[in-house]
Simulated scan of single mutants.
Amino acid sequence: MNELSQYNYLFLDRDGVINVERPNDYVKNIAEFVFIEDSLKAMAILTQKFDRIVVVTNQRGIGKSIMTNSDLEIIHQYMISEIEKAGGRIDKIYYCTDLSNRSINRKPNVGMAFQAVADFPEVDFTKSVMVGNSFSDIQFGQKLSMHTILVGDKYKKEHKIHNNINAYYENLYKFADSL
């Protein structure tokens, strides 16, 4: 039995986990939204393994007026549609447009997690996994006693973040395939 079989709830970051992150930029439209290789396959697998799947994503580009809430909604509808076509699902997407790092909703702060519990009261953070590609994602999960998974190539193997995670996978598909 897989060690993660005790976990029922999945929290995912978006950029760098589901889609290709745009360094020093934002995904502002569907043309700029590119799924990471095999992330759609990963979502189909994860849908079978978790009772709830939510996305928690910082979207400062809206706060900076680089894009609008409407732009983001179009991107998210596209993402959900493609994930559903591939046999996966996302139960809800939570995002923070705030510019201040002190905002309760901006990761690594935990406001988006409590929004998820308000919508899905059965969610138990100690039975949750947080998958992200950045230090703020890992801190978010740790503050809530979640099992933390780092994906991607943002940090070299020697980086201190690797001392603070439960596991590392090259990408979301490798994580999903391990379950």
Rank of each mutant, 00 (worst) to 15 (best):
N2E: 13
E3Y: 11
E3H: 12
E3A: 12
L4K: 09
L4T: 13
S5I: 15
S5G: 14
Q6I: 14
N8C: 03
N8V: 04
L10E: 10
L10M: 14
L12M: 07
D13F: 13
D13L: 03
R14M: 14
R14P: 12
D15G: 15
I18P: 08
I18R: 04
I18T: 08
I18N: 01
N19M: 00
V20W: 11
V20T: 15
E21T: 10
R22A: 12
R22F: 14
P23W: 07
N24W: 06
D25T: 14
D25Y: 15
Y26G: 10
Y26H: 08
V27E: 14
V27W: 06
K28H: 02
K28R: 04
N29Q: 08
N29L: 02
N29R: 01
N29C: 04
I30P: 00
A31F: 12
A31G: 14
A31R: 07
E32H: 09
F33E: 11
F33K: 06
F35H: 13
I36R: 08
E37L: 12
S39Y: 03
L40I: 03
L40Q: 11
K41W: 02
K41D: 02
K41S: 12
K41Y: 05
A42Q: 10
A42N: 10
M43T: 09
L46A: 14
T47D: 15
T47C: 10
T47L: 14
D51H: 13
D51R: 14
R52Q: 08
R52D: 05
R52A: 01
R52T: 06
R52L: 07
I53M: 07
V54R: 02
V56K: 09
V56D: 02
T57I: 11
N58D: 12
Q59G: 08
Q59W: 02
R60T: 00
G61T: 11
I62M: 02
G63S: 00
G63E: 02
K64P: 00
K64W: 02
K64H: 02
S65C: 10
I66H: 13
I66A: 14
I66Y: 15
M67V: 09
T68E: 05
T68P: 04
N69K: 00
N69T: 05
S70A: 10
D71I: 11
L72S: 03
E73H: 02
E73S: 10
H76K: 03
H76L: 01
Y78F: 13
M79Q: 12
M79F: 11
M79V: 12
I80A: 04
I80G: 05
S81V: 03
E82G: 06
E82C: 03
E82S: 01
E82Y: 07
I83S: 11
E84R: 03
K85S: 07
A86P: 06
A86H: 08
A86Y: 04
G87A: 02
G88A: 07
R89N: 08
I90S: 07
D91M: 06
K92D: 07
I93Y: 05
I93T: 07
Y94V: 00
Y94F: 12
Y95Q: 04
Y95L: 07
C96P: 13
C96W: 09
T97E: 01
T97Q: 03
T97D: 00
D98L: 02
D98I: 00
L99C: 04
L99Q: 00
L99R: 00
S100C: 04
R102V: 00
R102D: 01
S103W: 05
I104G: 01
